[in-house]
Design a protein around this nucleic acid. Structure first.
Lengths: 367, 367
DNA sequence: AGTACGATTGAATCTGACA
DNA sequence: CTGTCAGATTCAATCGTAC
């Protein structure tokens, strides 16, 4: 993506801006960020205090920033910041919003109303959730992230192969199993108490950024908090713009970012999608003599055959076409990937054409 | 609960009523059912045909009942049936609604607007979801159920101990891992094709009814379909009222219910489901910082080396792959167990990766 | 009878570059 | 805007058939 970078010179890059989220976003140029990650107030409607079975008090979220008089006010607030976020987002960009059942249905509906196009909802399954102390409901063991493109026709980024690699070579699913942010990772004040009530784990942002952004992309976090998004952006060599109202959080987040060492440029690279690899026309392999005209190809089960022409087309009797077209035609399929359909013989072994393409790619990449 | 039973004499008990859902609900007395389970149209908005990589066609949901002109029409429809459902529901009753990201945010917001009080959202994690064939999104591997009381002050039923027993004596969480409805359980027509495109698994309704109703309670299902709710109600000795528009489905559902034998009253709460085997992808260790990107691994005799990438692949020169694939490649072996092949250094000692996996497993035993 | 392998299938908002 | 075409893309289960 990074179509957004041309406008990025006006962006205050790699900073946490202290200010109200909507007002501050108004100062940012339109279409200037590649991705938004937002962890807005949850509108938790806790009635009174909550105690554990041993009578200790649960430190719930009761900060002022999480208080809204009613659903309508929460909706107005949500519509305001999501509208600004959409303006600032590049047309091919995506947005992530995390929430719980208290607020995620308001968020999701308003996202759709504003024209965002939902791509997935992701369930963050907590390995160590807080138990339900009263035994009146199911243990609330997950939070929901909505991942949406700016619009229905956005050509958004999804690093499919990197996600697949991250999950032992099977497709990454919409349910993610990750622990809460605890221990050393959790920022604490001078009394050893948690600095922020809802600090998100780095592993969550690591996966979000790895899935939907690339190196040097700009990520906007309008509710920056302790700066997990910013820190992970720096670690993964992305850029960030954070917005945060509370000066203590701004300070803590910038210190955290400063302590973060970016990964080496060559180790931050992930498994590439084939769509992004340089395209090699089959004909160029014939030109380069990687495969010679006259070679007879067949499919894996040697049911159909074809001969390579000097112009890179294949010939079977009166039929002629690209490796894809002829493969589709001979199998009566609507389409065909000729690279994996056609095989050639080398040292008595049947190998797919794709092997030749990979070998050529590696040779040219070394230069 | 069963506070609803006084009014149940006017209810057509244990029948599937043929008719439109809103109109038919109007004929039911107010406050007369203890629980509602609803599986409304999802408004999928599929745009074209979809083929698997092997060129077979995916049989998508293209039924007329799932077509709406726009979100506004879907919202009107949703508000209408949820309003009637709320009227028919006893003041201490609860409602379950299942959906996907296409519709669940509309549903959740309207539930809240109408005064329902959300108790949990439940994630049905599918053990065998359909993959994402184009590699453009995460595998859509879950659906969401919202569980809500009629109002904030409802004294609703939740069978906490039964749920705990069902879950090996630990609190039941909000994420449920259950297979799709397939095989013999799936109703089929005379051609062996699925009778209904979206039949829900019995295990799901089993858990829903066991959690939130008691023997002899009345459950209303306004989108009855193949009658999974009705069948499970009968099996668990509850009563049901179904509503279904299509006469074929009404007939099939009633036959299905007739074939269902109620459990003996004393065995109703003994069913137990299997647990999921724990699996830790190597990539998740990178995400969680158990091992950091850039770390150099080697084999036991330090003959080959590789560097850890952020997506959990290993890199050696131009070669990249999972811990298993790269190990196999570098040793020219047909396969390789990367967990025992690769070693890292800790306190001057060379330890296999498997040590990290074991340590992580112990810390976060998956449910 | 038991095992091996192939065919089938599931609520899916499922491509993108270039002329 | 439309049209064309290269070419990227699947996991878990169940069921039927062959051996």
């Amino acid at each position: 993506m990074s179509g957004a970078k041309s406008a990025s010179m006006e962006l205050p890059l790699d900073q946490i801006l202290r200010g109200e989220c909507v007002e501050t976003m108004r100062s940012l140029p339109s279409g200037s960020v590649d991705c938004v990650f937002a962890d807005p107030p949850y509108n938790l409607q806790l009635r009174g205090e909550l105690r554990r079975p041993d009578d200790t008090l649960v430190d719930g979220v009761d900060d002022d920033w999480d208080k809204f008089s009613d659903l309508e006010e929460y909706d107005r607030f949500t519509r305001a910041w999501l509208s600004e976020a959409r303006r600032v987002l590049h047309k091919d960009g995506t947005i992530w919003v995390i929430g719980s059942y208290h607020n995620i249905y308001r968020i999701g509906a308003i996202l759709q109303d504003l024209g965002f196009w939902i791509l997935n909802d992701i369930v963050w399954r907590k390995s160590n959730p807080m138990p339900n102390f009263r035994g009146r409901r199911f243990t609330n063991a997950h939070e929901t992230l909505i991942w949406a493109a700016r619009g229905q026709d956005s050509r958004y980024r999804f690093n499919y192969q990197a996600m697949k690699a991250l999950n032992d070579d099977v497709q990454m699913r919409s349910d993610w199993y990750l622990p809460l942010c605890t221990g050393n990772e959790r920022l604490r004040n001078e009394h050893g108490l948690k600095l922020h009530p809802t600090q998100k784990p780095e592993s969550l942002l690591h996966r979000v950024l790895l899935a939907s952004t690339t190196v040097n992309d700009v990520i906007l976090d309008p509710f920056s908090g302790t700066g997990t998004t910013a820190a992970m952006a720096r670690r993964l060599r992305r850029h960030f713009v954070g917005i945060e109202r509370h000066p203590d959080y701004v300070e803590a987040a910038m210190a955290r970012v400063a302590a973060e060492t970016p990964l080496e440029a060559d180790t931050v690279q992930t498994t590439q999608d084939k769509r992004e690899a340089p395209r090699i026309p089959f004909g160029s392999l014939v030109e380069q003599g990687v495969i010679t005209a006259g070679t007879v190809l067949c499919d894996k089960k040697r049911r159909v055959h074809a001969t390579v022409s000097p112009d890179g087309t294949l010939v079977n009797g009166a039929k002629r076409g690209s490796i894809h077209k002829l493969g589709a035609q001979l199998t009566n399929a609507p389409s065909c990937n000729g690279w994996t359909f056609w095989y050639f013989e080398r040292a008595g072994e049947l190998l797919p054409l794709d092997v030749l393409r990979q070998e050529t790619l590696q040779k040219t990449a070394q230069v």
